[in-house]
Amino acid sequence: MNELLNLILGALLVLNLLLVSASRLRHCIKLVAIQGVLLGLLPLACAHPADGHTWQFLLVMFLSLIIKGGLLPYLLLYTTRRINVRRELEPVVGYSLSLLIILALTGGAFWLGSVVPTAVAHGASPLVLPAALSTISTGLFLMVTRRKAITQVMGFLIFENGVSIFGTGMMIHNGLLVELGLLLDIFALVFIMGIAVFNINRSFRHIDTHSLNALGD
């Protein structure tokens, strides 16, 4: 079994805990960048069949390293600087409770990983499914419980990272093509969201999404 792969997946699991307990925006963005880098290194650690597609793996790896590890976090940082957002996150659910909830969700992910039979049959690491599901639920959880528009973008990014972990780790056939498409989507989305957040900020002087609930049409 591939040790490097398991190390990366273990690190991703711990990263989820760090993400929900991070209280500062910049720190949170840095963690997302680290997640992107780890995700980029994932194809390198996977044992894939020697059928001459190595260059494809390398291409996806470099693209996701550059985009998820560098470009997107930089965009997020740039937006936070531009709109002078308050540095502290304002969580709806407290940090310690968030940790416990994520722990419970991770436990559920491990349980699902042991139930779903594909993991073992596929020859993939038994850790892939738990790590992917845990990251996906972390992303969703962050989207729900953090009030800033920018943390919702981050939550979406983490969610998408989880999907990529699943695709890369399970070595899904033709997954790379899907991966590239997703990468493009997410890049466009963060770009658009950055502009949207900037505009929300200009009209409301803050990016607290709670005030958007009261909007009528």
Binding site: N6, G10, L13, V14, L17, L99, L100, I102, L103, T106, G107, F110, G113, S114, P126, L127, P130
Partner: peptide, 14 residues
């Protein structure tokens, strides 16, 4: 504590 539990889960799953 959560991280230690994850380490435990890693062993169990393995």
């Amino acid at each position: 504590l959560c991280t230690a539990l994850i380490a435990l889960a890693l062993t169990v799953i393995g």
